[in-house]
Design a binder for these strands. Structure first.
Lengths: 154, 154
DNA sequence: CAAAAATATTTTAAGGTTGAAGGAAAGTGA
DNA sequence: TCACTTTCCTTCAACCTTAAAATATTTTTG
């Protein structure tokens, strides 16, 4: 019966560490790049899909609600970092993609982000990092956090 | 140089797993207990301090902003789950504590929460859970996510 | 003691988040 | 064709979150 307590304690520690690191990333994004983690996540997803993503694909990839992405896209669009273009043949849909300015800006942010994480996890050896990442991958797959990555034909 | 990439990958996996589990907890709290994770967190902190906590202590423990706790306390208070009482000798401060109804309600939620986590982490043996929790603790301490737990004299 | 500084909390503005509702367009099927 | 359903996106109300400003009170200091 103490198994449940052991697992709960693991979860609480996990949550504390991840939240702590996440908060640090949010803070740095805000102060050093005048942006937010959700905006960074959207731009990151778009940078992995240079051809752009439909709004619904984007919310699928990020696992957030549709309305959420609408607001973030609005603001990024106001700043000229992303652009909405119509989808030929489907007047309901819209493709969101990084503008050249957005690509450039994201490249800077992503490099800084990688450096932050590298420093925060400096206490973890590369070999350990690989091992843990693999273990987490196995766990995630087993627990089916993966689901389908919306592997839709665009 | 690939060390940074290895650590970044670890971070992204960690984030995916923790976010996935957290989202599941939020969903269950909402659907089965008509509450939210922030509310649960506040009640959890208060349940560990039956004598109550000052607003500033609470935001310190939870590592959130002052204003944040104000709003959550407002809503919990509206439902009669927590109560605000003045601090004798300091008319600026306020002590927040669970009402009897709040204690009862939180006990139910906490039991359900423990069961959810136990199921989600069923693939992790109790021994592994203990080992990982200890490793995370060491990491957190080294990375000083602990800081002071506001170990104030009330 | 009175002015200044520090402390405790709330309010506010801006953004993030969700589920549900709404509007437009596309697809289905009789 | 024309109703019905589905899909795509936005809007909306409610809540969470923060940093900064505003209030009220206490403490410090000259």
């Amino acid at each position: 019966m103490s198994a449940a307590k052991d697992r709960l304690r693991l979860w609480l520690r996990l949550l504390k560490v991840v939240r702590g690191m996440e908060q640090e990333v949010r803070e740095k994004l805000r102060r050093e790049h005048n942006t937010t983690l959700p905006r960074f996540d959207v731009m990151s997803a778009l940078s992995r899909h240079p051809e752009g993503l439909k709004m619904s694909q984007l919310s699928g990839v990020l696992r957030v609600s549709n309305g959420n992405v609408t607001g973030i896209a609005d603001r990024l669009s106001d700043e000229g970092l992303v652009e909405r273009t119509p989808v030929p043949g489907d007047r309901r849909a819209i493709i969101l993609r990084l503008t050249p300015a957005g690509q450039k800006e994201f490249a800077r942010q992503a490099q800084a982000h990688e450096n932050w994480i590298d420093k925060m996890l400096a206490g973890v050896s590369p070999a350990d990092a690989r091992a843990m990442a693999e273990g987490l991958q196995a766990f995630a797959t087993a627990a089916e956090f993966e689901k389908e990555e919306t592997a839709n034909a665009q």
